[in-house]
């Protein structure tokens, strides 16, 4: 029962998988200490954050959109969690000080992320702002708000409970890895097994046909931006708790890493085609590349150049492959 589509998808996945394995083998030979358990967990920890953002980005890109604001939303929601834990809220009128426990602070941070995502979605659907522009504006807005909220300085000393959330281990595996894995799994189920997931593909594949089939196209789009914003806030939770500090520049440039992961994973920027598992491979490729280059001691400036070429290579390979099929 291996028909044409499955076979092709398998082949496309195999491409990235083979590339990943080749990279692992190459770095094992070239970079001392790359293939150690310590480094394995370092890579896993690093890709956890990118994976949170990339899963949300995959959903948005599948509908034919893009979300440039995830890095800034990560920073703002992280800062809000930290701020609430550290300073609480002052209600000067009532001369009242409210303190927050970890669950409340985290919940509010996630809510802020989801709200900003909802705002992105509103701009895209209600006011027909192109997703690139709407989320580019949010990138600036959320970053500015972060700097305002933190006063431009890191908020540190967030307490042991909060720090353990992100940097602790459960069954010997880092918590952040559990979180990222859980999100990935949920997204796979969402896309394959729910109406919303099917609608995401339909809207990205042919919006007109989706609309005529009775789908609420605007609602589908809004929902993916909300999910993306909320997952960015989860990224904020992980970063902030791991560092025990929320900095105003947290997550800068992460939107590009996550778009890269999605694209390397074979999801089409025009929407309708792609998968979360592809994105996972993409995130792994970026993670392995980052780690290997660092261990080899490659000049950080050169690292960027190399990363750029890897992205191009992935997309060109994908194009050549889909042309011959």
């Amino acid at each position: 029962m291996l028909d044409q589509k499955n076979y092709r998808m398998l082949l496309a996945k195999a491409h990235s998988l083979i590339a990943l394995l080749l990279m692992v083998v190459a770095f094992s030979l070239l970079a001392d200490g790359f293939l150690s358990p310590d480094n394995f967990w370092t890579v896993m920890r690093q890709i956890s954050v990118n994976l949170c953002l990339s899963v949300g980005m995959t959903l948005v890109i599948l509908t034919g959109g893009i979300d440039l604001s995830v890095g800034s939303i990560l920073a703002l929601s992280g800062a809000i969690m930290a701020g609430l834990l550290r300073r609480g809220t002052e209600l000067e009128v009532l001369n009242l000080h409210i303190g927050y426990g970890v669950p409340a602070a985290v919940a509010i941070g996630l809510f802020v992320g989801a709200s900003l995502g909802w705002f992105n979605g509103l701009m895209v659907t209600r006011f027909r702002v192109p997703p690139f522009i709407a989320t580019l504006a949010m990138l600036t807005i959320a970053r500015g708000l972060t700097k305002l909220y933190t006063g431009g300085e890191a908020i540190t000393g967030l307490g042991e409970v909060f720090v353990r959330t992100g940097s602790g281990r459960w069954l010997g595996i880092p918590n952040q890895f559990w979180i990222a894995a859980g999100i990935t799994l949920a997204a796979v189920v969402l896309l394959r097994k729910t109406r919303l997931g099917r609608y995401v593909y339909a809207v990205g594949g042919n919006e007109e046909a989706a609309k005529l089939s009775g789908l609420n196209v605007a609602r589908v789009k809004r929902t993916v931006y909300v999910i993306s914003g909320m997952l960015a806030a989860v990224g904020g939770l992980i970063v902030t708790s791991r560092l025990n500090s929320a900095t105003p520049i947290a997550g800068e440039g992460l939107e590009l890493d996550s778009i890269a992961a999605v694209v390397i994973g074979g999801t089409s920027l025009s929407g309708g085609r792609g998968s979360v598992l592809g994105t996972v491979l993409g995130a792994l490729i970026i993670g392995v590349l980052n780690s290997g280059l660092v261990i080899m001691g490659v000049d950080p400036f050169w690292q960027q150049v190399i990363k750029g070429f890897v992205i191009l290579l992935a997309v060109v390979a994908d194009k050549l492959h889909s042309r011959e099929a």
Binding site: R198, Y201, A202, G205, N206, E208, A209, A210, L212, S213
Partner: peptide
């Protein structure tokens, strides 16, 4: 207007 071309036959029928 009628079809999402990348979708499978079964997904198109049930859309």
């Amino acid at each position: 207007q009628g079809l999402v071309m990348d979708m499978s036959v079964s997904a198109s029928v049930s859309l």
